[in-house]
Design a protein around this nucleic acid. Structure first.
Lengths: 277, 277
DNA sequence: CCGGACATAGAAGATATGTTCCATTTTGCG
DNA sequence: CGCAAAATGGAACATATCTTCTATGTCCGG
């Protein structure tokens, strides 16, 4: 058996598989080929299913896992499961530990948030539905005015959207509720509303989105899950799940979505103006 | 129990979850929310893991599965495991596809910004000087009050910092210049100022940072290059170079730095309070 | 042609996991 | 305020799954 220890990542494992597969007995090579061909199945299958797929006995598959340096199938599967879940199972607990230990240096903390941001970005690219995005951009670019609302944590996103739309010469109104002034009646039919809210959802944001919808405006929602209270309000639901830590999330993915929205809308508007001179 | 049979697809299931979640008892609603927020974990987790994540007992999660029309957790999980194989065009390939699918399409645009954000994050982790970060956190955690200033594009960062510091019970003042009210004289010796500005640098931000420095406050700068006008004002210069895309930058890295700052300062404060009772 | 070593298949055993049941607590209603 | 119904938590139970073991088969070298 190989003296080296077990691979620490899926990539490393696949490299190892290719490396050793030539010198392997027949059945074990079948396993190697099958794993190399369907690495994605490992995470969600049982040994029985894998071995059947490879055309071997379960015990043969077990030996294969052990040749790779694992104690058994379960250990190997854990690797695949973790990589699928993208490690954000326990970001909260990891950071919690970092904080409790006190040994968590600021740089380590920053590294955690950088990593969380990266995962959020990847997840955004993977899960966002292009059609919903297209529809949202269409609604926004056809609007006479874009109203933006987001409170508390989401306010930074709202203010960024307001800034960027202004740069793009898109008529915009940021509903900031300074002085608790109620500005919901500024929304007209033919306008559009971008409502941003994350759990715990801010009632003011939801209320303004509903008011806008009643007034005949299209509503685009940026929120964190399908369970959002904005779901009944609009079909244009852009969901962004950031890896968060208690009340904190870095908003990396949300901001990227925001800037993409703005640029797309700005471009669409310019094209329309040029196309209809 | 619901007379209808179990959902046949993940989408159908999530719809059903949203539909029934309002009329559900507390613990079952926790399950519903958790599944809605992390549908991807169902495929690779055990009941124990899921129920822990939702903050309920395994038996509660079982009941939840049965309310949905499944015989148990296993049947529900099968749904997720089966659908898993399909949406596994992984991040890299997905991004590639998004880019190819028409240069100007919104999805392609989003992919660009996601990639830009990722590069910014990696760059941040690589280039930020840990000692400067430590010093900045020390200055902020020792301050009586933290003043935050950032205009235009940087305002979203400033508002996020204000929100997050408030959550951490750190005394904070956001200088937003609403109504052009001048609040610079609120800064005292023993306070700290976080000034955020990117090229083209906002004169108001620089002016307030200078005023704070003259008043005897420590100044922490978040800016985009060493050529920043804030450099003469303070040695605590945190430089973040975001990958630009035209006139827009997504602020992914800046926001990650911001949240790391806040958590580190909040933790340091708490430690000090406990250490000096 | 024979003997030994390795590979294999199948079954038996150990473990982890899902599931159910029941006592206790909470909630809602008269 | 008291009762009944629902919800909940925890532990016991059943089962699916992993893992190990051994008898059998196959290949290679002497």
């Amino acid at each position: 058996m190989d003296a080296r220890s077990a691979p620490a990542s899926v990539e490393e494992l696949l490299d190892r598989v290719l490396e050793v597969s030539d010198g392997l007995p027949k059945r074990l090579k079948q396993c190697a080929d099958y794993v190399a061909a369907n690495p994605d199945r490992v995470a969600v299958s049982t040994v029985a299913e894998m071995s059947e797929g490879a055309g071997v006995q379960p015990s043969a598959f077990m030996r294969f896992c052990q040749v790779l340096g694992f104690s058994g199938f379960s250990q190997m599967q854990r690797l695949f499961r973790d990589s699928y879940a993208q490690n954000w199972p326990d970001y909260a607990t990891r950071l919690e530990k970092l904080r409790e230990s006190g040994a968590g240096s600021p740089s380590a903390l920053l590294a955690e948030f950088v990593e969380a941001g990266r995962l959020s970005l990847e997840n955004l690219a993977k899960t966002l539905d292009p059609r919903t995005l297209d529809a949202a951009i269409k609604a926004l670019s056809e609007a006479n005015m874009v109203h933006i609302v987001g409170m508390r944590r989401a306010f930074s996103v709202a203010s960024y959207l307001a800034y960027a739309f202004e740069k793009m010469n898109v008529p915009t109104m940021l509903h900031d509720s300074v002085g608790k002034l109620d500005s919901r009646h500024a929304i007209r039919a033919g306008d559009a509303v971008i409502a941003i809210t994350f759990a715990p959802y801010s009632p003011e944001t939801v209320a303004l989105a509903e008011a806008g919808s009643r007034a005949g405006a299209k509503v685009v929602a940026i929120t964190d899950s399908l369970a959002s209270p904005l779901r009944p309000v609009t079909p244009l639901l852009l969901t962004v799940s950031e890896a968060d830590f208690g009340d904190f999330r870095s908003l990396s993915a949300t901001l990227s979505l925001a800037v993409a929205l703005v640029v797309a809308v700005g471009t669409a508007n310019r094209a329309r103006k040029n196309g209809i001179p």
